[in-house]
Amino acid sequence: MTDADTTAGGRDRDAGGRARNARPRDGLGRPLPYGADGVERQPEGIVRTAPETVAEAQALLDAGRPFHAHEVFEDAWKSGPEDERTLWRGLAQLAVGLTHAARGNATGGARLLRRGAGAVEDWEVTRGEDRPYGIDLARLAGWARELAGRVERAPAPVDAAAEAPRLVS
């Protein structure tokens, strides 16, 4: 294990002693058995500029790794300006919704896609800004609601890369 050690109690911990699951993960963030080949984990707690956040998340979405894109948005949500947290949280919810839809969890995927759509629309209405950092929030909310409806009607896993939204058009 490179990022964490297992304590005598069997719990993975990082160098600071915080609980951190060191199991490898697949491209959709699902834990794999210790020793299995997984995808590179997204480092946590990285402070990026907003344009860096959008670019990194888009690259991960395009690669079919929405769980990892969610972690990028979560970093922005936790470290960004207070007045932008609703935006980043909504984008994280959209990425997690796509993750669940790709895992075949139609109910959870649809719920999170709609919650994220509502959050970015609320942010747009509250702020009166429809394209923060070039992100077309109205188009993104429409994408999320359309995908939510499709996964509810045909609850089978979706292809995360094929369904990934374009954040900036």
Rank of each mutant, 00 (worst) to 15 (best):
T86D: 09
T86S: 12
T86F: 04
T86G: 13
L87R: 01
L87I: 06
W88Q: 01
W88S: 00
R89H: 15
R89L: 14
R89Y: 14
R89C: 10
G90V: 05
G90R: 02
G90Y: 04
G90N: 09
L91E: 00
L91W: 00
Q93K: 07
Q93M: 09
L94S: 01
L94C: 09
A95V: 10
A95P: 08
A95Q: 10
V96A: 14
V96W: 05
V96F: 10
V96L: 14
G97F: 03
G97H: 04
G97W: 02
L98N: 02
T99H: 10
T99N: 11
T99E: 13
T99P: 06
T99Q: 14
T99R: 08
T99D: 11
H100P: 06
H100T: 09
H100G: 06
A101P: 08
A101T: 08
A101M: 10
A101H: 07
A102R: 03
A102T: 11
A102V: 10
A102S: 15
R103H: 11
R103S: 10
R103W: 10
G104T: 08
G104A: 13
G104L: 12
N105W: 08
N105I: 06
N105D: 15
A106S: 15
T107R: 15
T107I: 15
T107M: 13
G108N: 08
G108E: 02
G108T: 07
G108M: 02
G109V: 07
G109W: 00
A110H: 05
A110C: 13
A110V: 10
A110G: 11
A110T: 12
R111H: 14
R111V: 11
R111I: 07
L112D: 03
L112H: 06
L113T: 04
L113P: 01
L113Q: 03
R114M: 12
R114A: 11
R114Y: 09
R115L: 07
R115M: 02
R115Q: 14
R115H: 09
R115W: 01
G116Q: 02
A117F: 07
G118H: 03
G118K: 02
G118W: 06
G118C: 10
G118Q: 09
A119P: 04
A119S: 15
A119H: 08
A119E: 06
V120G: 00
V120L: 04
V120T: 06
E121I: 14
